[in-house]
Amino acid sequence: MPQSVARSTQMMRKFEKVCQILDQYDRDPAKLIPILQAVQEEYRYLPEEVLTYVATSVGLPPARVFGVATFYAHFALEPKGKYVVRLCDGTACHVKGSIPILEAIRERLGLTAQKTTTPDMLFTVETVSCLGACGLAPVVVVNEEVYGQMTPEKGVALVEEIIAKEEQK
């Protein structure tokens, strides 16, 4: 049963942290977006039970919180991979060939537009509408790191590099 002990400990921590975040924002419904951002920062996504907890705490119907969480592209209701590979498909990147890079990376990782996270939770691949680094188009961002002037080959190499690094661990 140590596993269940671990699980419950994990859950306790979860709500302890949410409470801290809620207190930090005075449980103010107007601060829902910063609250959700802080929650996502903590858990990397917005788990349903946490959202329900947040809703009750700030005094909003859960449906409203769900509505806000699903409106903004940055909020994820599913867990994301350890490495979030975001491919810029802004105008500048698009005209410089961002789609072939996306396709190459997806192919390497066996992902599609619908299936965006690898089963081992290592990678999530998604597109973003503009990262504002158009001067370097086409651009790929891995977590916070920006990689400019990409090609399909460079994209795949980047992914390979991460896989190799992880395997070493």
């Binding site: 959202l51 119907p61 859960p62 449906a63 409203r64 509505g67 409106f71 903004y72 592209a73």
Partner: peptide, 25 residues
């Protein structure tokens, strides 16, 4: 929301995926 103050349903998602849904669908 406005008359009953319940809010059991609300808009969710965005753009062409917008739907009126109870929380978490």
């Amino acid at each position: 929301h406005e008359i009953q103050s319940v809010g059991a349903i609300d808009f969710a998602h965005r753009g062409s995926n917008v739907a009126v849904l109870p929380a978490f669908g």
